[in-house]
């Protein structure tokens, strides 16, 4: 069908543009995955295929790399990604209570997206802001010295 081909070609052009500065070699697989994810919010199948082609790397290897590193997502993510730090300092300062409170508030399982598409909630192994433990991060912003109530309030700021 012509429309689908048209769509595909458009996507291909987009990927080509995203990756234009990268050499077409295997070393580019990880940077390419990072760029595509940055642009699309996750790694769609056609993105993986394009990267495999572009870097001359078998698709299976690209998939293996995408699933090995915790930074990559194969499913669409919420508009905002909430990461609760589970580093040592945060752990002993009560990070779990924050995490449970947010899971409760959002009513989702770890890694899931809220039905309204607003949030994804995950944990992260140390954000390196240990002096402010317990810490959480919404997108690129770090929130320190959180209590369960404060953490819930932070999410409300992102609601509107």
């Amino acid at each position: 069908m012509p429309e689908i081909n048209e769509e595909l070609r458009k996507m291909q052009n987009t990927y080509e543009k995203i990756l234009e500065d990268l050499p077409e070699t295997r070393e580019s697989v990880i940077p390419a995955l990072q760029l595509v994810q940055k642009s699309r919010g996750y790694l769609p199948g056609d993105g993986l295929e394009f990267i495999a082609d572009y870097t001359d790397t078998p698709l299976a290897n690209v998939y293996s790399i995408a699933t090995f590193y915790s930074q990559f997502y194969l499913e669409p993510q919420g508009e905002h990604t909430v990461k609760v730090c589970q580093g040592t300092a945060c752990h002993i300062k009560g990070a779990n209570e924050i995490y449970e409170a947010l899971l409760g508030k959002l009513g989702i399982a770890p890694g899931e997206v809220t039905p309204d598409g607003k949030f994804t909630l995950t944990t992260v192994r140390c954000l390196g802001a240990c002096s402010l433990a317990p810490v959480m991060m919404v997108d690129d912003k770090v929130y320190g010295n959180q209590t369960p109530d404060e953490a819930r309030d932070v999410l409300d700021e992102y609601r509107d």
């Binding site: 070699t25 295997r26 070393e27 580019s28 697989v29 990880i30 995955l33 990072q34 870097t55 790397t57 790399i65 090995f68 590193y69 915790s70 930074q71 990559f72 192994r125």
Partner: peptide
């Protein structure tokens, strides 16, 4: 890209090699 083991030198090399 988010893998603790990449702090190990041979794993880090693999990661740079893509």
């Amino acid at each position: 890209a988010g893998a603790f083991v990449c702090g190990e030198e041979t794993a880090l090399i693999s990661s740079i090699e893509g």
